[in-house]
């Protein structure tokens, strides 16, 4: 690792994009699951909550894909998005166990 002031480049673009698609996708689904749990969504596609959550998931996923290039390295992207994915899904499982 160099000590130079960090400049961003696209050398790790495959790692960053795959992190955004897989880990980032998993994380947005986890956000959907946690929020749905909190508002008591029932998952019926005809219901307002299910449709609103579906839109939210799509918007978040596009945003993660668009901003993943700002991670300094591919490893960092996987760490943050993958970590977020694990933490949020754990939170969901916890919420489900508590109810």
């Amino acid at each position: 690792m160099t000590k130079l002031p960090q400049t961003l480049d696209n050398r790790h673009w495959i790692a960053k994009v795959s992190a955004a698609i897989l880990a980032g996708g998993g994380m947005t689904f986890a956000i959907m699951a946690v929020l749905g749990r909190l508002i008591g969504a029932n998952g019926d596609p005809r219901s307002l909550s299910a449709q609103a959550l579906m839109w939210l998931t799509a918007v978040l996923w596009v945003l993660v894909l668009g901003t993943c290039f700002l991670f300094p390295t591919g490893r960092k992207a996987w760490a943050v998005l993958g970590g977020g994915c694990v933490v949020l899904w754990s939170l969901f499982l916890l919420l489900r166990a508590l109810s």
Binding site: F29, M32, A33, G36, R37, I39, G40, A41, N42, G43, D44, P45, S47, L48, S49, A50, L53, M54, T57, A58, F92, R96, S99
Partner: peptide, 23 residues
């Protein structure tokens, strides 16, 4: 996305206090 939702929020646990407006 709806398939994930129905697995995640589906039949397994029906929360007793789910608000009626989402039914």
């Amino acid at each position: 996305i709806f398939a994930v939702q129905s697995r995640v929020f589906g039949t397994s646990h029906t929360s007793p206090h789910s608000p009626t407006h989402t039914r």
